[in-house]
Nucleic acid binder design. Structure first.
Lengths: 352, 352
DNA sequence: TTGAAAGCGCTAACAT
DNA sequence: ATGTTAGCGCTTTCAA
């Protein structure tokens, strides 16, 4: 029953004829209520209703170049982090009656470019969540269409990031309070701006609070990434580890468990972001929670503001507050912990 | 740097002028290569390239009503199941140079309708993953635009579903092989077609293989849903439970753990779908794996086929094969298991 | 093979 | 307040 409608959809001309007015009046009645007599407007609406008239957004877009669509580019739709982000963006967009066109870079810079090309002529603006493209390429896009970038503070492109500094500080302080004296950080993608920010902040605060730090990796920011580097982390006698993100942290926990360590007694683990899954692990993950959904919404709202004429605030990223959520994966340092039974880990998997 | 482009984008007129041909020839050169002399075509392409000409999809859409966009409606973007689905759809779409417009029903039938309205005039066809609308409403949509529905076999609308029957059979057989004699099924949303299919299949096969069944719920299909009904499940002395989906199953595991039961020795748990998270729990979840990504791709491919003129195959759903993935959450039945320490569970959360 | 011209449905001056 | 008249950029007859 997937037939085309038998009658072509009614247009403003049809409505105009029946209502006995000019097409432009019908147009006004919808596009700019108030610029038309209340009575005529009412009549027009009535006729429109009766005829089942629906404005054609394509035609409107052609003459106004307003498509009421914004593009959302993510580097991996399957990543739970982006799922939340998408929802936030989605909500903010529909609040203003915009629709979001989704593009998935699948972790490839080339695909990202390509997808962006396809998006460009259709959308009024673009939100990019963690790009795999060069800053140069980003700037080139920004020249063509309003753009807002997530998780990456660039000087001249509006961006929204989380307060990694405060997050790292909270994590370090928490671990110190638990008696830990040394922290191992498992690094994410080298190209990741966020990774740099987190490590630096962690390192600085640790020094400030008198803790040691060690950095391993980088790994792909997935469960497999964390799992794969688990042995290396444990071999060194780490008692507290902070993962680049939740997925990595969860991978580390899995590795620890395989090595027969007890969690969290033998090893404290902290993640970043607080994806939904963080709550479901055993033990549930202590993590620096980011307002992911809010990030998506903030990005879209600001983009929309720019589209409505606001001056884009470049030069200074919007930084969103984070908060440490203490769950079960962190505990008092155990001085005579079970030593890990290493060498049992095998890995397979892909990037994120 | 979010300025509008200083020069308006070049059009076919610009290209035509420089190439010394008529605009319509330029149009043909792109829209219908072959219907134009090879040399002129080459010249046109060269000029276009040099001018940086890009066809305007909006204008094209206005005269052809082909937007090269398809709508994808999900009932909850944040649900990992849909994340995978989206990716599949996304990939299939871009293979044919289509773009996907995402809409999120946020579990509300009303929002779903509304979002659909917004989508309708813009897309060439729609894929709906698990609708919250009535079949009547669905049929009404199907009248207006090619539609394909997931996880819900309707007589007269093309649909793709998984082989719940085979999945349930595999689950039951597995549990029987482990010595279980009774299975508790935790039901999902009443309105869910899938829930009905799963329960019926489970029930039938169990009877056939000589096992008892019991059905509890319905619950919202989330971790919280499973967690919340955990006590009820355990109180009855269940040794094997099958959840409506993975999230529910994982919730049950959490409840069991809170009740101090050992997993999987004291309780075997099986889920449905095999979302990414299923691998990350402790123990990792045994589940009836659905080819989620493939489902999304299949839906889109079939939709595209219809758009290209194929006759929609209604009346018989595409059913996709599933397979039982045995991981750590199922084990031999334990005749003298630890009895659960109930009454410790508190719940909060929302639907999925 | 190519060009001229008429739309696609709507918006936006410019008149009245 | 409303009507007239050009477009927006592309496709598509219809002629040449």
């Amino acid at each position: 029953m997937v037939d085309a409608p038998r009658t072509p959809a009614p247009t403003i001309y049809d409505v105009a004829k029946v209502a006995g007015v000019a097409p432009s009046t019908v147009s006004r009645a919808f596009a700019r209520p108030g610029r038309v007599n209340a009575d005529t407007a009412a009549r027009i609406r009535a006729v429109a209703e009766q005829l089942g008239y629906r404005a054609n957004p394509i035609a409107r877009a052609l003459s106004t170049s307003k498509t009421r669509m914004i593009g959302l580019m993510v580097s991996d739709v399957a990543n739970p982090f982006y799922a939340e982000l998408i929802r936030g963006a989605q909500m903010a967009a529909s609040e203003e009656d915009y629709v979001v066109v989704l593009a998935d870079a699948q972790e490839s810079g080339a695909l990202e470019r390509e997808a962006l090309e396809r998006l460009l002529p259709v959308v009024e603006g673009i939100v990019i969540g963690s790009s795999r493209m060069s800053e140069l390429a980003l700037r080139s896009i920004a020249k063509q269409v309003p753009l807002i970038v997530l998780n990456h503070a660039l000087g001249d492109i509006p961006s929204v990031v989380t307060d990694n500094r405060a997050g790292a500080r909270a994590a370090v302080a928490h671990l110190r309070d638990l008696g830990h004296t040394s922290i191992t950080y498992v690094a994410g993608p080298e190209a990741s701006w966020t990774d740099g920010a987190r490590w630096r902040a962690l390192h600085d605060t640790a020094r400030e609070l008198g803790l040691q730090t060690r950095r391993v990796g980088p790994v792909v920011p997935t469960f497999e990434g964390g799992l794969g580097i688990g042995d290396e982390v444990l071999a060194d006698g780490a008692t507290a580890v902070v993962g680049y993100n939740d997925l990595v942290a969860i991978g580390i926990m899995a590795a620890a468990r395989r090595a027969r360590m007890r969690l969290p007694q033998d090893l404290s683990v902290i993640g970043f972001d607080d994806i939904l899954t963080a709550r479901l692990t055993t033990p549930p993950l202590t993590t620096v929670a980011a307002p992911i959904r809010f990030m998506g919404a903030t990005a879209v709202r600001n983009l929309l503001a720019v589209l409505h004429g606001a001056k884009p605030r470049a030069g200074q990223a919007y930084v969103l507050p984070v908060k440490l959520v203490v769950r079960g994966s962190t505990a008092q340092r155990n001085r005579n912990r079970t030593s890990p039974a290493l060498g049992t880990t095998s890995v397979s998997g892909s990037a994120s």
